[in-house]
Each structure stands twice: as structure tokens, then as C-alpha cells.
């Protein structure tokens, strides 16, 4: 595994120019994610339209992987039914934590997230890639609590 597989252009682009960066006021759901080990912090804001994500924004102070993952996530989940969002999160989480590399069908099912799969070979960085997703999931559950990945 080469560094270039981790720091692909699409990831560097999202980290330097994060999409949907910012906040949403009430009545948006909001949840924070902290990675106390490296100091990554992300806050995800989202509003619902029935059972769809109407809008989503995030703020983050963190490494390229955590910012890029958050940015890519917001692009993917905006306008999507919650059921699909939850399924995508669980596919993504399974793929980056799995022992074996995902096969072609699995990669396909990950939509645009395949570029992030490189973190599998950098175990200390997996939590960076999943931080925003955990926060988003916690926002959806309405618990609004701070998520920690450690």
C-alpha cells in the first residue's frame, strides 16, 4: 500500500475544499465527534424532510482524512432517504474495518466512498475516516451527544 492510495487526489481535494462546510441553525439536529487521541473534532448539522435528509453541513478541525470523509459524506447523503443513509454508513464502516479488502461488488455499493477504503491499510487512521459518520449517525438518532472514537 502506497501513500498515494491513502492521499488520493479526490481526498486531498475534499480536504482542501470541503463541501457543505458550515452550520445549520435550529431546528437542525446536531452532533459532535471527538477523537481525543489526535484532537480531530467534527460537528455535523442536519435537517430532515420526512424520512429524507433535507440538508447537511459540517464543521471540522482535523486531519485530511477526517475532513475529506466528512465532506464526501455530506455530498452523498443530502436528499437521500434515511434508510439508505444508514445502510451506506454500515457498508462503509464494515468495509474500512473488515479483515479482507472489499470485492468489486462491494466497492460499487460504496458509491463515491471507494477512495477512502485505503485507510484499511493504515489502522491508526480508520477512526479519522469514520468520525463524521458516527457523529451523523448520532445526530440522526437524535441523541445529539458527543461521539468519541478512540
Amino acid at each position: 500500500m502506497e501513500l498515494r492510495d491513502l492521499y488520493q487526489d479526490v481526498i486531498l481535494d475534499h480536504s482542501k475544499h470541503p463541501r457543505n462546510f458550515g452550520t445549520l441553525g435550529p431546528p437542525a439536529f446536531e452532533a459532535r465527534g471527538n477523537n481525543p487521541l489526535c484532537g480531530d473534532r467534527v460537528t455535523v448539522y442536519l435537517t430532515l424532510d420526512g424520512d429524507r435528509v433535507a440538508d447537511v453541513r459540517f464543521e471540522a478541525k482535523g486531519c485530511a482524512i477526517s475532513v475529506a470523509s466528512a465532506s464526501m459524506m455530506t455530498e452523498l447523503i443530502k436528499g437521500r432517504p434515511l434508510e439508505e443513509v444508514r445502510a451506506l454508513f454500515s457498508r462503509f464502516h464494515a468495509a474500512v474495518t473488515a479483515k479482507n479488502a472489499p470485492d468489486a461488488a462491494n466497492l460499487e455499493a460504496l458509491d463515491g466512498l471507494a477512495a477512502l477504503i485505503g485507510v484499511r491499510d493504515f489502522p491508526t487512521r480508520v477512526k479519522c475516516a469514520t468520525l463524521a459518520w458516527h457523529a451523523m449517525s448520532s445526530a440522526l438518532d437524535g441523541s445529539g451527544t458527543t461521539v468519541k472514537t478512540e
Binding site: 501513500l3 491513502l6 492521499y7 482542501k16 489526535c38 480531530d40 482535523g62 486531519c63 485530511a64 482524512i65 493504515f122 491508526t124 487512521r125 479519522c128
Partner: peptide, 11 residues
Amino acid sequence: DGVHPHDIGTI
């Protein structure tokens, strides 16, 4: 500048 320490550490 422009690079988070965590990324520097990995590289």
C-alpha cells in the same frame, strides 16, 4: 501550514 500533524505522522 496546511497539513494536519496526523497526516504528517502517517507520511
